[in-house]
Design a protein around this nucleic acid. Structure first.
Lengths: 213, 213
DNA sequence: TAGTTTTTATACCAAATGGTAAAACTTTTA
DNA sequence: TAAAAGTTTTACCATTTGGTATAAAAACTA
């Protein structure tokens, strides 16, 4: 019997592997050096291909950069929505949300850092996206939190502020990991540290909003 | 009578004015473009001097960058210490701390962003400083919070986490201002927004740690 | 196996940019 | 007022780097 992998998909598989190796390299370089400081050469080197080869896959730096951002945004969209868990208790929704956010900080620290650089720089590339995609979702989620307050399920906190707080506290473990590592006297943040942090943040937020379990 | 300003101090006054104009420009450019993306030319242009003139004042880019970081660190050192307010109640200390931190986010958003870029990039310049200066202060402050817990003044939260939370939530209003502006539908964050944010964060933190007033 | 497509390597370049050298101009000092 | 010190301008350059052009090599297809 001739078990043969479909050549077309085999090819595209190889390509996918290489592309994702490139993207991981790019993430790291962009996170570490910023957009301007990241040279195509250094990204290529890290991905163990030539610069010209890199350009074959990603014709220019901006496109590569956008792809990296796109990836993390897709992950966030996929994993993060208050709205989707509609019906669950605030306690459960927030636990799940913080959990997912920390999971992402843990698994994709570099993507997270690239995103942070982008926003801090004034979101030159993502401004439109934020307006058209994030804002509507934010409005929906704020509405949901307001309904919780109206039902007396949580204390009357400012919903917008609640989101900013959750984002900031979870993201800080990815973005400011260097600082946290130094202050906690760790070479690297381990799974344990993230678990601990998640528990602390969850606790903190739930106490602050006085969520009934 | 010959009222004459001491020429020496007059000169150095002019120089101070120009230098601080340069530093403010540099802050903005570094915040917006990152270290590598910030050109000496653009900084000079913003400060309304020639590039060569800029180089006269700051012989190279790295030195200018370090000066910008130094400025914000000095401000933080000056204004932020749990320890110094020893004796005050946790409630008062935290209120004051959050207040100062938000004040800084409001007044020096660009410095704050430059710092954020630096840390996210792995603190290539500031790593040593964090180890030698921030860490000891952090340890002292953590100790103080622990004593609060032991005295039953606040709930048994993780002290480290408390600091990370306060830093993250206050800093986010400077660093991620672009995102927050979009989500709150504001062209710029006004004094009012910062006051509101400060109140929310303070409330939030005090609830979370169950501080007795 | 011949042809086609995909991938990799070689050579090169134009623009941007950090920085130098030094002259010209201005202000301060003695 | 003349020298000294401080400031600004002009001219220039070496390096980095994103990107192009092109051809060789490898992989795949018919």
């Amino acid at each position: 019997m001739n078990i043969k992998i479909n050549p077309k998909s085999k090819k595209s598989l190889n390509r996918q592997i290489l592309e994702s190796r490139i993207l991981r390299s790019a993430e790291f370089i962009f996170a570490t050096k910023g957009f301007s400081g990241a040279s195509m050469e250094s990204i290529a080197e890290m991905a163990k291909i030539s610069k010209q080869n890199l350009i074959y896959y990603f014709p220019n730096k901006e496109q590569l950069y956008k792809k990296v951002l796109e990836e993390i945004l897709n992950i966030w969209i996929e994993k993060l929505s208050f709205f989707e868990t509609l019906g669950a208790t605030p306690d459960a929704v927030i636990r799940q949300y913080v959990h997912e956010k920390m999971q992402i900080s843990r698994m994709y620290p570099n993507s997270s850092k690239v995103f942070a650089h982008e926003i801090i720089s004034g979101a030159p590339v993502l401004k439109d996206y934020l307006k058209t995609h994030l804002k509507p979702q934010f409005d929906r989620d704020v509405k949901l939190v307001k309904s919780w307050i109206n039902k007396g399920l949580i204390a009357p906190v400012a919903p917008e502020s609640l989101f900013f707080t959750i984002w900031a506290t979870t993201q800080t473990y990815a973005d400011f990991s260097t600082q946290i590592e130094i202050l906690l006297d760790k070479k690297r943040l381990e799974d344990d540290d993230f678990d601990q942090a998640e528990a602390n943040i969850t606790d903190f937020v739930l106490r602050a909003i006085g969520a009934k379990k």
